[in-house]
Design a protein around this nucleic acid. Sequence first.
DNA 1: GTGCTTAAACTAGCGGCGTAAGTTTTTACA
DNA 2: TGTAAAAACTTACGCCGCTAGTTTAAGCAC
Lengths: 209, 209
Amino acid sequence: MARPRQALLTRERIVEAAAALIDAEGLDACSMRRLATELGVQGPSLYNHFATKAEIVDAVAELVVAQVDITVFRGNDWREALRLWAKSYHAVLAAHPNIVPVLATGPGRRPAGLAMAEAVYGALIDAGWSRARATHIGALMRYLITGSALGSFALGFDADPELYDRYPHLHRAHELAAHRAAVDEGAFELGLDLLINSLSDRYDQGVRR
Amino acid sequence: MARPRQALLTRERIVEAAAALIDAEGLDACSMRRLATELGVQGPSLYNHFATKAEIVDAVAELVVAQVDITVFRGNDWREALRLWAKSYHAVLAAHPNIVPVLATGPGRRPAGLAMAEAVYGALIDAGWSRARATHIGALMRYLITGSALGSFALGFDADPELYDRYPHLHRAHELAAHRAAVDEGAFELGLDLLINSLSDRYDQGVRR
DNA sequence: GTGCTTAAACTAGCGGCGTAAGTTTTTACA
DNA sequence: TGTAAAAACTTACGCCGCTAGTTTAAGCAC
């Protein structure tokens, strides 16, 4: 086949297929040849639309980050906005866990990532936090959100009971996997509460840097 | 060459070379062939000592985690112990950032990882925290520590100043890279303070679950 | 001491990866 | 209508993890 009368590929179709493949089977499964097969095309054809594989993966990351609700920074107190944003971000990452390693390295040059950073940082600055502290708070939130999304804490423990024979306090660790949601969500909620409440206390005491 | 009079490889030598290679050039650079070259040997020879590449990488992770100081849980108040442990863990990961993605998925079956989990969880239980809360606190600490180690927040922003023209609050974001240490360390310290202080407050108020 | 088994190196090769180069045909425009 | 660009193709390069089979030395039983 040479050039078809109707183009088989568009950047949009490629990104959507890549996102679906990454969601369904993980980053490793999303190879150029496999992705092309998924689109009914040969591997190198993708290079007519993207210069590198990294560009495709980046576009998937952009698509995911764009789903985070940053409108909450308009019309809400900074504390409430931060909490709502963090929950939205957390929920989006929970829905697309396989792309998290890409997001964890920062916004890079992705518009949605930069818009999110702008919204978070701007809200903190407008609230009166110093530039340095606003940066720290932004970083801290990213640590908590991507840290929790990167890998389930509960599933990080092998389900083999014998593994824990030598560790008296861990003798029930093999049950963690069964309570995955409660463990992981509970930890995230606790972290969010602790961080925002204690930041709020400092703020109310006038400590803003 | 067939079997040499003196073995060229040992598991220990392989793991040390892998650790050095990962530290120096990253996880991707640590291929079986490259690692073998580093050891003066052909690629497949490594399979006489490890069944898979994952086993080698896991052994490197074990080596790194074993450097974390968990003796602090003996003889210290749980708050102080948690803080000292977190700082030690953070410092170890800062010294070996390239292996962090492997650690971020949890202890798996690695003895040093399990021993660390035992020490942290045990200290929290002994202090009187409920099992559920102790688990949450442990998870939370991992989120903060691996989240901050996974990728510099400061370096997550491209250094190209033009990139931020459309984002009024980010107009100085290109300077972040120059203050990498202050930004990243400041955020981690802030997070640790906030988490431990607010946990401490709850604890002192008798809220332990 | 002489076999036998196992260990530890080797070489060759499989299927997959990202990507470069060059080909073919169609489309769009001067 | 001629020409340039676009979008598919095929082929191929040098990596990758890993398997299979070969060679030689080491360790041990008799």
